[in-house]
Design a protein around this nucleic acid. Structure first.
Length: 639
RNA sequence: GCCGGGAUAGCUCAGUCGGUAGAGCAACUGAUUCGUAAUCAGUAGGUCGUCGGUUCAAGUCCGAUUCCCGGCUCCA
């Protein structure tokens, strides 16, 4: 029986040889590292005996499938430990996820953090026992009977909904789980793991269904990798924007003021202003017009826009002299009124209305999260009204804009297109054309994307841009949405070249999204060490002794004249202490001034990254850093 | 909103069995005038998230509530 390997080589084996034995014949190292294998394109266990000639690829922890297999087996080991300690526990699902795995368990008793240690101890025993994972294939009915006997109601429910005639199950000792597999050969593989925390999770992700207990864990082939991962989590904790926001005195969110309402302190407000100034400048360059709408609009207008019917739950309302008003959750309505305020010709289009609009949304209490999920935030929002012919180039303009802005901050991002959902308005052709326009725009700009079928807004498809925070959570920032509904509801029109009235198409788009959320991600991205142009304090002047105070004041004055943002530390403290504090504040440039510098009109420059840069004349320092102190110039070609 | 955990000085945290509140850092005061990540000494700082209950006595036990943390659902 001939077995062929990925490099094209092949070898003969007797029928019935297992994959483990095949791997061993190649090398003990490979056999030890192989977690599963791909047999003629299908994932199988290493214990699988071979019947006929085949192509084989061994999967180790450096293959994605190998990692998934390993973590999936880890979740089974954890589940077995749980079942040993809590025989009445019912198992739901236990898949691998990025960097780990989880298992959802239905158990009346609450699993506390102390219990996690007990579960880990039980897992240690299971690992030491090196229990083999064995696969069986049962007829569907028999599998249902088995899991009914075991009281595993969730497994029964899943099998009953499956189409297949047979079901594969895996056993490890007295533990049985329904599972597609594959698994590692035995439990002894799972040596480097940790149960991280518990959480609630709805059965099947449906908030109407029962809340189960989810145990999150992580596991690695190597002890070193586990430690590296736990260290990485610790590092991420240090760059958490909520922690840095307090340490750098950027913002606060206070119980007294209300949940999800951000209070920007001077340094944070300055940071925000710098970003907003850049945005205004870039929008004007790209043919947007800056507009501003009110914070409250009458309820009738929200009824007309559809928000009353579709978004009321998320809105705040107030009453003034008997009239009902809604606080805006979006900026679009005022923009509609601006468009409608005069007769528009096709020659006027596209019209691009831009607003740094502060909106308020009533978010459920459990979802609030620092700056990343709040109840009041400012969007860099714009509504583009254009003809159907202009749609493609307008979308491309937005995509290019997103790319340019993300480039400024060095962000990696992912793009997704969300298509027509089940509940939607508008004609089939409109949807098709809009979706094609979005796809074509991404193709034209050579940006890869994935498709989220049926995830679009009810009024149109959208492109979403997703950024990651410090611990890998994904946050949506930029979005481009086609909207047919609002132009219709507000009866927007333009006079075409044919002299007839036509309906414009509207693009709703944000580039950074919520400025607040974006800054949260940005703080984590830079770990608080912002590039000089956006650092609230760009230069901190540190004196060696009181004697240098006057010289320090004159240097500070000169730098301020240059437009640099400067702070001075003239306290009677040792220089090491002042440097330490300035470092913790993550100020990009420190200038150390003592008698030597005062006598020669020089400054001793220290940078937060590379330390002491030596002594230079003040003018030389100014010219040397002028470029990085100014907001970046973004390359932009019109058209 | 749901599940679990939590809230003690500006920050990080300790506080035993219910018996009158503790540390380090920060702050303030004084001394020190110092050359690239923490000088020394002293002082002050708390309605223990809030409201209610049990008790002779509550930071500690019970209930409610607000907010926070980790997830789920939802989302910029």
């Amino acid at each position: 029986m001939k077995i062929t390997f990925p490099d094209g080589s092949n070898k003969d084996f007797e029928t019935g040889t297992t994959l483990v034995q095949v791997a061993e014949s190649i090398g003990a190292k490979l056999a030890k590292a192989s977690l599963a294998a791909e047999l003629n394109g299908t994932l199988v266990d290493m214990t699988t005996p071979l019947k006929e000639e085949a192509r084989v690829r061994f999967l180790t922890f450096s293959d994605e499938e190998g990692v998934d297999t390993f973590r999936h087996s880890s979740s089974h080991v954890m589940a077995q430990a749980v079942k040993r300690l809590y025989p009445e526990a019912k198992l739901a699902i236990g898949p691998p996820i990025e960097d780990g795995f989880y298992y959802d368990i239905d158990l009346a008793e609450r699993i506390s953090d102390d219990d996690l240690n007990r579960i880990e101890e039980e897992m240690d025993r299971i690992v030491a026992e090196e229990i083999p994972f064995t696969r069986e294939v049962l007829p569907r009915e028999e599998a249902i009977r088995l899991f009914k006997e075991l009281g595993e109601d969730y497994k029964v429910e899943m099998i009953e909904e499956m189409d297949e005639d047979t079901v594969s199950i895996y056993r490890q000792g007295d533990f049985v789980d329904m599972c597609r597999g594959p698994h590692v050969p035995h439990t002894g593989y799972i040596k480097s793991y940790k149960i991280l925390h518990t959480a609630g999770a709805y059965w099947r992700g449906d908030e109407k269904k029962k809340m189960l207990q989810r145990l999150y864990g992580t596991s690695w082939f190597d002890k070193k990798d586990l430690k590296a991962y736990l260290d990485r989590l610790e590092e991420a904790r240090k760059r958490d924007h909520r922690r840095l926001g307090r340490e750098l005195d950027l913002f606060s969110i206070e119980e007294e003021a209300g949940a999800g309402l951000v209070i920007w302190h001077p340094k944070g407000a300055l940071l925000r202003t710098l970003i907003e100034d850049l945005e205004r400048k870039e929008h004007l360059r790209r043919g947007y017009q800056i507009v501003m709408g009110p914070q409250l609009l009458k309820v009738d207008l929200w009824k007309k826009s559809g928000h009353w019917d579709n978004y009321r739950e998320n809105m705040y309302f107030t009453e003034v002299e008997g009239a009902q008003y809604g606080i805006k959750p979006m900026n679009c309505v005022a923009h509609m009124l601006i468009y409608r305020s005069s007769i528009r010709s096709y020659r006027d289009l596209p019209l691009r209305y831009f607003e740094l609009g502060t909106v308020h949304r009533h978010e459920k209490s459990g979802v609030l999260h620092g700056l990343l999920r709040v109840r009041g935030f400012t969007q860099d929002d714009a509504h583009i009204l254009c003809t159907p012919e202009q749609l493609n180039s307008e979308i491309r303009g937005v995509i290019a804009f997103v790319r340019d802005m993300m480039g400024v901050f060095g962000f990696e991002y992912e793009m997704e297109i969300s298509t027509k959902p089940e509940k939607s308005i508008g004609s089939e052709e409109d949807w098709e054309r809009a979706t094609q326009a979005l796809m074509q725009a991404l193709k034209d700009e050579e940006i890869p994307y994935k498709i989220n079928e049926g995830d679009g807004a009810f009024y149109g498809p959208k492109i979403d841009v997703i950024l990651k925070d410090a611990i890998g959570r994904m946050w949506q920032c930029a979005t481009v949405q086609c909207d047919f509904a609002l132009p219709e509801r507000f009866e927007l029109e333009f006079v075409g070249a044919d002299g007839e009235r036509h309906r414009p198409i509207m693009l709703h788009r944000v580039i950074l999204g919520s400025i607040d959320r974006f800054l949260g991600v940005l703080i984590e991205h830079y770990a608080g060490a912002f590039p000089a142009w956006m650092s609230p304090v760009q230069v901190k002047i540190l004196t060696i002794t009181d004697r240098s105070a006057n010289y320090a004041r004159s240097v500070a004055g000169r730098l301020r004249e240059e437009g640099f943002r400067v702070e001075s530390d003239l306290r009677n403290e040792k220089i090491g202490y002042k440097i330490r504090e300035a470092r913790l504040e993550k100020v990009p440039y420190m200038i150390v001034l003592g008698d030597r510098e005062a006598d020669t009109g020089t400054v001793a420059v220290r940078h937060r990254e590379d330390g002491d840069r030596g002594v230079v004349p003040l003018d030389e320092f100014v010219e040397g850093v002028r470029g990085e102190m100014a907001p970046p110039k973004i390359p932009y070609k019109e058209g």
